[in-house]
Every structure is written in structure tokens, then in C-alpha cells.
């Protein structure tokens, strides 16, 4: 038995005798404080019982034999609690370990995302991606090319947490290993689909929207693989339209073809791309409507693209009581006036 134990024993004797003498609330308060110390020192319940018995024997030398023996009985009962407590401790330690491993992995994952936001001439870009828990199943990516085109990808791995994050790193790798020469959005998705189908577990599916913005001609070509539709805001009409692209989710069929769409982007128009964590935001009243999102965007339209996405996120976060249920990614590309 260590010194700490002897000291606790001494203290227990003192506070118990004090209590037996005065029988007041203060004495019980000491007992409560003592229980914290006992836990701190990892003294198991059976030891507390034994401590109690030995103190009792000292203070009441003629304690009835039956009462004394009953403590042996209690001791035996408490062993189980002691073990459960120790197991709880060790599981807690293991949980802490796992959490810190996940922290490391989450930091690593952050490095998969673009470190900066492109700033091509005449185009204002804003993006925000926030995981629901530590790791994210959302992904976005920018590709600049020598033809003055900015490629943008937004992907959502169906699922959440660590498995989705592992899959997300596959997508990053797959995108990096695509052929050097510029691919049209539909070809790029077909290519990526093949990689996903062959390399990613068959129960993992990925939705993606890929677009290419031609900074000189101001056209936006895009294709989608089962991804949540975005929005197109037309400044002239002052209206939001759905920006959807038909196509099968990546990883389902070996050979898939994707349709390509094109928009001519007028000054002040903007493109909104998002993951379903934005639209499937749940409040106490149920899922929010897509109109709610466009309303929020409209409220902040006078700001820069980055400020817009930040504000929309904060308001949706507030609507949901600061609890994200799904990974959130929102991207806005606006042609400057």
C-alpha cells in the first residue's frame, strides 16, 4: 500500500469520527469531497468498504460480530463495482487514444483540400467546407489550366465519418492521377467513375458535380453524377434556377456516360454548388426547403462570394441549433460586373 493510501486512511478516520460526533451536514460535505479524492487516487470500492470497517473497529471495539461479518459480505459485492470502474477507466483511455488518432487523421485530411481559393480575373470565388464530426465525407477541388479555364469539383461521399473520409482521400488521389491534358467535364466524370468502380469498396458511392469555367468566354460547362443540384442566379432576371445535371452516381456501373451542360454567364450571375449537408439541414420543424437556402443567399448577395458562403453557413448552423448532421460544403462562383 502506498503513502497516498495511508494518508487517505488517516483522513477517513478523522472525518468519519468528526461526523459521528457532530452528525451535521458539514461532515457529510467532507464525505463528498473525500469521494472525489478516492476516485482521483483510483481506490476501488472494496477498499473503501475495508477502510470503513477498520475505522469502525477502531472506534467501536465492541461492534457486534454479526455487523462486522456483514462487511465481508458487502466487500464481496463491491468487487464487481471495482472491476466495472477499472474497465470504464481503461475504455475511457482507449477512447481518448482513438480521438487523438482521429484528430491527426482529420488534420491530414484538411491538407487534401485546396489550400487557397483561386482568384481568376473577373471571377469571384468563395467556398466553405465544414465536417459534421471531425472527418469529412465532402470534397472539393480546383484545377487551373493553361486555357484560362478553372475546373471546380464538389463531391459528396454517401456516408459519414471515418469510412467516408477514407473514401474521400481515394477521390483526391483519383483526381490527381487523371490525365494531364484538360478533360471535358463529362469525360472527366466517366474517367473518375472507372477509377472509383475499380478501386473503392462496392458499398461506397460518390456523387459529384464537375464544372469548367472559361474565364475568357464566360461559359460554364458542367456535368453531374447523381449530385445534389446547385443553383444558378441570373442577375438580369433576378432569379434563382436549379442547376442540375443528370448522371449516375460514381462507382455503380463500370461504364457510365455523362451528359454535359453549358451556361453562358452574364455579369453579376453566379453559380452555387453544394453538398446535401446544405439542403438536408434539419431544424426542429423538419427539413428546410431549398427556397430557404436561396433566400439566405439572396440576403447576402451584396457581399463577396466568400462572405456569402460564410454567412449562409452561420445562419444554417444557427437554424440547426449548432449541430451539423451532415458534412457541409458550399461554393459560389460569381462573374464580376
Amino acid at each position: 500500500m502506498g503513502d497516498a493510501y495511508l494518508r487517505l486512511q488517516e483522513q477517513y478516520r478523522k472525518i468519519l469520527n468528526q461526523y459521528l460526533e457532530n452528525k451535521n451536514e458539514q461532515g457529510l460535505y467532507h464525505a463528498q469531497q473525500f469521494s472525489k479524492k478516492v476516485l482521483e487516487n483510483q481506490i476501488s470500492p472494496e477498499e473503501v468498504v475495508s477502510l470503513h470497517l477498520s475505522t469502525l473497529e477502531e472506534s467501536f471495539p465492541d461492534i457486534p460480530k454479526g455487523a462486522q461479518d456483514s462487511f465481508e459480505f458487502l466487500l464481496e459485492v463491491m468487487i464487481g463495482y471495482g472491476l466495472a470502474y477499472q474497465e470504464h477507466q481503461s475504455l475511457k483511455d482507449r477512447q481518448r487514444e482513438l480521438e487523438s488518432e482521429i484528430d491527426v487523421a482529420a488534420n491530414m485530411q484538411q491538407t487534401f483540400l485546396p489550400s487557397g481559393i483561386p482568384e481568376p480575373e473577373d471571377l469571384d470565388v468563395g467556398v466553405l467546407s465544414v465536417p459534421a464530426s471531425k472527418m469529412s465525407g465532402d470534397y472539393y477541388h480546383f484545377v487551373h489550366d493553361e486555357n484560362d479555364c478553372l475546373g471546380v469539383a464538389i463531391a459528396d461521399i454517401i456516408g459519414k465519418g471515418v469510412p467516408a473520409a477514407l473514401c474521400m482521400s481515394m477521390i483526391k488521389y483519383a483526381m490527381d492521377s487523371l490525365p494531364e491534358q484538360r478533360l471535358q467535364p463529362a469525360d472527366l466524370l466517366a474517367n473518375l467513375n472507372r477509377v472509383v468502380e475499380q478501386n473503392v469498396a462496392s458499398n461506397m458511392f460518390i456523387t459529384m458535380m464537375y464544372g469548367s469555367y472559361d474565364v475568357r468566354a464566360h461559359t460554364f460547362q458542367y456535368a453531374g453524377a447523381g449530385h445534389e443540384p446547385g443553383f444558378y442566379y441570373s442577375a438580369e432576371a433576378d432569379e434563382f434556377e436549379e442547376l442540375s445535371a443528370k448522371g449516375i452516381v460514381l462507382g455503380i456501373k463500370r461504364h457510365a456516360e455523362f451528359r454535359e451542360y453549358q451556361r453562358v454567364v452574364a455579369p453579376g450571375d453566379f453559380i452555387v454548388l453544394l453538398s446535401d449537408g446544405v439542403t438536408e439541414c434539419r431544424t426542429e420543424q423538419g427539413f428546410i426547403e431549398r427556397e430557404e437556402i436561396t433566400r439566405l443567399i439572396r440576403n447576402h448577395m451584396h457581399l463577396s462570394a466568400q462572405e456569402m458562403v460564410n454567412h449562409v453557413f452561420h445562419e444554417l448552423e444557427k437554424l440547426q441549433g449548432f449541430q451539423l448532421r451532415d458534412d457541409f460544403t458550399l461554393m459560389i462562383l460569381r462573374r464580376e460586373v
Binding site: 464487481g80 470502474y85 474497465e87 481503461s90
Partner: peptide, 20 residues
Amino acid sequence: ADGFTTSGGLGAGLPGVKRL
């Protein structure tokens, strides 16, 4: 491993014996 016991018996079982 902690938390394995089939009976769900908290804490006891073989890991408990090892601790005791």
C-alpha cells in the same frame, strides 16, 4: 479485450481476473 464478454457482465470475465 475490455468490453468483450458475451454475457455483457460488466468488468468481470477474464480481463477482470487479470486485473484482480
